[in-house]
């Protein structure tokens, strides 16, 4: 039976190469709803934005071609562009490592199958579902404002003499946003959890027989085995970090004096508040380039620290 079947298969394959083409077509047909959406709502706008980035476009009248002028202004004479870059880098390179470390820490706690762990998993994931939403941003304002909950607690403990606004003070504003980012650790946590579950328990068992303590097990087994997952999370989070917008738009509006001016917020201001849409498009493409560079760097560096079983073998 099997012989006959395989023979038939072979014959069929010989008969028509068109069969595989047909299969491909079917595949494209299945993903076409997404593909069409992708082309219309992503590729097309991106290319259009590329065109606008070479124009002076005030939204109210037709764009005028000005060549590389926008890019030249950005790199030579725009102080706020530099400020926004600085703030965004500071945010990405503090908030993202902290968030990942915290996510890993929580995931390690949840990897054991204790009672109530499923409940805690859900609860800890909640902040990420309501994620970058306006509601959370508004809540943050209530917590860290001058009349916020934090000040209430601190002053009732007698630790605070004058009330300060944590979100409005130039020294603390960015840190409250970083704290918000760290608090939203749910999705990297879930991915870490999936990764942790894939590490065979036998590794730990044999390690503990050989006398390795918890710290050794963590650095010699968990981290290397988890490195592909860490790599994935790092790439994802860096990208989302660069695109952070809602937090500063709702909570601080980029203030006080641009101390929390995220790149995406600056882009929004230029495009929709100052009506410099051409310039905003140029900013968008520069952001894409920056994210591309950082993603590429992380990929390059992965050769040195991401452990892959197949390579080892």
């Amino acid at each position: 039976m099997t012989n006959v079947a395989s023979k038939e298969k072979k014959q069929k394959r010989k008969k028509s190469i068109g069969k595989s083409e047909y299969n491909n077509l079917a595949g494209y047909a299945f993903i076409s709803p997404w593909l069409i959406g992708f082309i219309i709502f992503t590729v097309f706008p991106m290319l259009l934005a590329l065109y606008f980035s070479f124009t002076k476009y005030d939204v109210l009248s037709d764009p005028k071609w000005i060549g590389l002028e926008n890019y030249k202004n950005m790199f030579t004479s725009d102080d706020r562009f530099r400020t926004a870059l600085g703030v965004t880098f500071k945010y990405v390179f503090t908030a993202i490592p902290l968030r990942l470390a915290f996510a890993l820490f929580i995931a390690m706690l949840f990897v054991q199958n204790r009672k109530l762990v499923p409940l805690y998993r859900t609860v800890y994931y909640l902040p990420s579902i309501i994620g970058g939403s306006v509601a959370v941003a508004v809540m943050w304002r209530q917590l860290f404002g001058a009349n916020g909950a934090l000040n209430g607690v601190l002053s009732s403990l007698g630790l605070l003499k004058t009330q300060i606004s944590w979100i409005g003070n130039p020294n603390t504003a960015l840190w409250t946003l970083i704290l918000l980012a760290v608090w939203q650790f749910g999705s990297p946590m879930l991915i870490f959890l999936a990764g942790l579950k894939q590490i065979p328990i036998s590794y730990y068992e044999s390690a503990s027989i050989d006398g390795a303590n918890g710290f050794h097990q963590f650095t010699k087994i968990t981290l290397p085995m988890l490195s592909p997952i860490i790599f994935f999370n790092l790439v994802m989070q860096i990208i989302s970090g660069f695109m952070a917008f809602t937090e500063s738009y709702i909570i601080t509006q980029g203030g006080p004096f641009d101390k929390t001016l995220f790149y995406a917020l600056y882009l929004f201001q230029q495009g929709f508040q100052f009506y410099n849409m051409g310039y905003a498009c140029a900013l968008a493409w520069v952001l894409l380039a920056i994210m591309g560079i950082f993603t590429a760097l992380v990929f390059k560096s992965s050769n040195y620290w991401v452990y892959s079983e197949s390579k080892e073998g």
Partner: peptide, 13 residues
């Protein structure tokens, strides 16, 4: 990533 970048540009489109 593409979709997200797309989102931020959708407004232009």
């Amino acid at each position: 990533t593409f979709t997200l970048v797309g989102c931020s540009n959708n407004s232009d489109s």
